[in-house]
Design a protein around this nucleic acid. Structure first.
Lengths: 103, 103
DNA sequence: AAATAATGGACTATTTTAAGTCTATTGATT
DNA sequence: AATCAATAGACTTAAAATAGTCCATTATTT
């Protein structure tokens, strides 16, 4: 029961947050688009959840001064100094045994 | 001096975080793509910062169990009960006086 | 160190988004 | 309540991303 919202709903809700950020700065879509260097349509698409590119999002976030948010996706796991010492280099690829079946 | 990274660099760094999340769950790109219902290329594009759609990102985040992150972009501002009372309905559009010049 | 499998990169066709412009609607201002 | 301007929506063209496939590279396993 954790993925209640559909991807479409999630994009729409996300767009509303972007709109909130913009309105807090009290700038209109056109200004945001110009300052960002993207088309007005790109901003509309983002805010209305009508489909957008990650590039447009990143650029807009920069303009809104919220680029730091992008770095909070996968926070580093905290480990003790002892663990730190015996820590082997992080995995770069997924490992073999994927499922449960044998062979 | 706050926007040091270029949008390209930011997308790349973001992709690395997505990769980290995937590797913590120890699944390969192909599995992630299949479970998510997107093409393997879409996952590659995301992780390598080669350009992707917001839709692909949202879907992948759902699969990785990190969809909640999308709701942390614009946290509600905390206001006191007193302010709560006299709070007028939130603005839906940006307001007039944008620049500094007159008329 | 050999074998295996995960990932990167290239390519083509298809679908989606960006960009640019115009019109209709409606929130905000006076 | 009348005016003004921000936003939604539709349309067209260009650019970019997705999907599907194949091969090269290299981390990981044995």
């Amino acid at each position: 029961m954790q993925n209640s919202k559909t991807p479409e709903e999630m994009e729409a809700a996300f767009g509303q947050q972007l709109r909130d950020l913009r309105l807090r700065r009290n700038i209109d879509q056109r200004q945001l688009a110009v300052q960002t260097g993207v088309a007005l349509n790109a901003v509309k698409n983002l805010e209305n959840g009508r489909g957008a590119t990650l590039t447009s999002l990143v650029k807009v976030l920069r303009t809104l001064g919220r680029a730091d948010w992008l770095e909070t996706l996968a926070p580093a796991v905290a480990i003790s100094p002892m663990q730190m010492l015996k820590a082997k280099q992080p995995r770069q690829r997924a490992s073999k045994p994927k499922g449960s079946s044998h062979v």
